[in-house]
């Protein structure tokens, strides 16, 4: 089976002061459709950068990244935005909702950017709100919502384009335990329905729930284990 994501020999460094800092070094990673992966590691280990790389928000210095058999590293910004819109949904720790727009307007935004009519936007968003159990909050502004509700709205926004990949950067980081669990349950449910779920987290319990664990240190993937395997040994996929 073809891999959905195929990353080879990927490097990325930033200039910090005058010193180049190697944030990602020689990353090889293959991910199939429908996987549930957690990426863990200390702060500064490059896990968020890897996530942004997968989400086409960041560009590598060199190496190759194929998304759905399409080489992305040479694409111009417009085409990358197009791919991002069609294939990828982002969920952030801070929710990143636009605070002057109501919940449903936030969710409609990706549809609006791709030119869907107002009426069918509203229908699709409402369906999703009902499915996620936040239909009654559709016309609330973000500041009128609880953290858990905001993250659900953010998930709805990520899901509205029916992407193949859902990227979550510390999705429970700003939530209490109960709403955090609810959000994770929701994400896992979406995964069982076929979406590829990649979660970056500090939370060991959360990390363990994934079917495949990546551990990163200093820009390298040092562990890549399926859930049911022993915790010893280092393999690269």
């Amino acid at each position: 089976m073809q891999n959905l994501i195929d990353i080879k020999q990927l490097n990325k460094s930033y200039l910090v002061g005058e010193q180049p800092l190697q944030v990602l070094s020689q990353i090889d990673l293959a991910i199939a459709q429908g996987e549930y992966i957690s990426i863990m590691g200390p702060s500064g280990s490059g896990k968020s950068t890897l996530l942004n790389m997968i989400g086409l928000l960041d560009r590598p210095d060199d190496g190759s990244y194929q998304l759905s058999n399409q080489q992305t590293t040479k694409l111009d910004e417009e085409l990358r935005a197009e791919l991002r819109r069609q294939h990828i949904g982002f969920i952030f720790q801070n929710f990143h909702l636009i605070d002057r727009l109501t919940a449903i307007e936030n969710v409609e935004l990706p549809l609006m950017l791709s030119g869907v009519s107002a009426q069918s936007r509203r229908e699709k968003a409402m369906q999703l709100f009902t499915r996620l159990g936040i239909a009654s909050r559709a016309d609330h502004l973000p500041k009128q919502l609880s953290g858990g509700q905001m993250q659900r709205v953010a998930i709805a926004r990520a899901m509205i384009m029916q992407p193949q990949i859902l990227l979550a950067d510390e999705p429970t980081g700003n939530l209490d335990q109960k709403s955090g669990l609810e959000v994770i349950d929701l994400l896992e449910e979406l995964n069982t329905q076929g979406i590829t779920l990649i979660v970056v987290t500090h939370d060991k319990n959360l990390g363990k729930r994934a079917h495949r664990h990546l551990k990163m240190i200093d820009g390298k993937i040092i562990k890549d284990l399926p859930n049911n395997q022993a915790t010893t040994g280092e393999t690269n996929a």
Binding site: G55, A81, F90, H96, I98, L113, S114, R157
Partner: peptide, 16 residues
């Protein structure tokens, strides 16, 4: 800036 970042993350092109 954050809003611009969000717009880009959800697929807005530079042109948009």
């Amino acid at each position: 800036k954050q809003e611009i970042g969000i717009l880009k993350a959800i697929g807005a092109s530079a042109h948009q």
